[in-house]
């Protein structure tokens, strides 16, 4: 397994705020990494640094290249869908395919046309005549036909309806992803990506506050549903978070002893969104 991204002490200061604060992480190939954080936590800045779209302090190695200096070569191996609906509004489907096919050395035209054949998109249709979901379909068809090693997705499904969202991630998993490829995705719709992620990174105030693979997270974090009688005992174990459901308390523990928790009540694996809410408590306060 090779390393795709190595970041060491990444910092980026905008005029008023620190968007990245000495962040360090590694991403291996063949992973699907969720970069999750509240608004303004530095997700987009981190992605921009990886894509060579912004300057920063610290060391960053993406596929053995420096994104600041070797951006042209890097983009042959890296694709990104940044935000929804950023395709130019004047372009036609046919023109977009022609252009990318002639510009990109790793583009497979037949593959792209096969993806497009599964949609309602017409060759002469302009982007301005499409719905948001159709624009994403076109963008995804272009990107999936590129044999890139790293795919960066920044809120790719924001504002799409559930059909498009499901289809988006399903296509990625079934027709695109393999062990040589790596996907980094940021999104607020955590529930929809959590079952496809292999790794999870939480970012808060420019710092990486959690960086682990999903298996490790399942072992480390445990949720226990506890009746009123055992609530005090559970609280004594210093839970990360506590909430009430149907008269019972649900406690979230980080690295607590599994056997001890089993004695208190029914244990289960916490969802990423519950974990996220617990970790980010007080962010906007």
């Amino acid at each position: 397994m090779s390393t795709v991204i190595t970041a060491n002490g990444l910092s980026k200061r905008y005029k008023a705020s620190l968007a990245l604060d000495n962040a360090s992480f590694r991403i291996e190939s063949g992973r699907i990494v969720g970069l999750i954080g509240p608004n303004g936590a530095g997700k987009t800045t981190a992605l921009k640094a990886i894509l060579g779209l912004t300057d920063f302090q610290g060391e960053l190695d993406v596929l053995g290249l420096d994104p600041r200096k070797q951006r042209g070569r890097l983009m042959e191996q890296v694709c990104f869908i940044a935000d929804v609906a950023v395709l130019p509004r004047w372009i036609r489907v046919r023109e977009a395919v022609d252009f990318v096919a002639n510009i990109h050395p790793r583009f497979n035209r037949a593959k792209c046309e096969a993806f497009l054949a599964r949609t309602k998109l017409q060759p002469n249709q302009r982007v301005r005549q499409m719905s948001k979901g159709m624009i994403v379909q076109l963008h995804l068809a272009l990107v999936m036909a590129i044999d890139a090693r790293l795919l960066v997705l920044d809120e790719p499904t924001l504002g799409l309806d559930i059909l498009y969202r499901k289809q988006f991630y399903q296509s990625l998993l079934e027709d695109y992803f393999d062990e040589d490829k790596t996907i980094i995705v940021t999104t607020h719709q955590v529930e929809e990506v959590e079952h496809i992620l292999t790794d999870l990174m939480f970012i808060r105030d420019g710092k990486i506050v959690l960086d682990a693979d999903m298996e490790a997270i399942g072992e480390r974090f445990i949720e226990v549903m506890v009746g009123a009688d055992h609530a005090a005992a559970a609280r004594a174990l210093k839970p990360l978070d506590e909430r009430q459901v149907f008269g019972k308390s649900i406690f979230l523990f980080d690295g607590a002893d599994r056997a001890m928790l089993e004695a208190l009540g029914e244990i289960r694996r916490p969802s990423v969104s519950d974990l996220f809410v617990a970790t980010m408590k007080g962010t906007y306060a």
């Binding site: 951006r71 983009m75 042959e76 940044a82 395709l87 130019p88 510009i103 963008h139």
Partner: peptide, 17 residues
Amino acid sequence: DDRKDRSLLFWKSLPIS
């Protein structure tokens, strides 16, 4: 114009200097 409508992000995702 492409900075304004953000399509810059699409052009910049291609290997073009």
